[in-house]
Amino acid sequence: MFARIVTSALFAGATAGLLIALLQYAFVQPVLLHAELYETGTLVHFGAAPVSAIQDVSGFDPLRDLLSVLFTMLTYCGYAMILVALMGVAEERGADITLRNGMIWGLMGFIAAHLAPAFSLPPEVPGVAAADVLLRQYWWFATVATAAVAMWLIAFHFTMVGVGAAIVLLLLPHIIGAPQPAEFTGPVPTEIGALFASRALSVGLAAWIILGAFCAYFWTKEGEAA
């Protein structure tokens, strides 16, 4: 089973990751590059002269952009490893894994790994003020883990107790609260920050649905081959 999980996760993660990297390159990266013009001081918000909202950030930086593609593929291979492992456990316990419900697996993955932490730590545009990175990472991992357990409970223990526990697990990290900065120092216009967060989350949603479908596809394909 280990070989089946790893093989299907690597296929799913690499192929989905490539598509996701292209989506990020087309829709998220231009907003990030625009923000960096303010982060580096090339543009100054509320400076002496008004700044045009339209900036040319096109262009392909081979090393930087190819590294982004590579790391996106690797990251989604990691997520695929987790998703396929859980699909394997669910299948052993009697669940059917299909291409269509794979997309729902992906949606649940998006809620756990992307939406739940973003509720209190929104995707950061470069240059924003933020609390200590290590504290935010601890909070991020804890929030993703509790949200993932909550998704599992909703999917496979749909009882009063299961759903009640899921709601508590989903709310708890936000009631405790994410590490927040002491003061706001970001030089980037809020319009860019809002667009960045919304693009990152929307592309993340598409990413996870693609990943879920690919994981289910390769998992069932590898099962037939064995």
Binding site: Q24, L70, P123, P126, V133
Partner: peptide, 14 residues
């Protein structure tokens, strides 16, 4: 190396 992907994926980066 992972900077842009970390921001785009919503990981705490800096």
């Amino acid at each position: 190396a992972a900077h842009d992907m970390r921001h785009a994926t919503g990981f705490p980066c800096h």
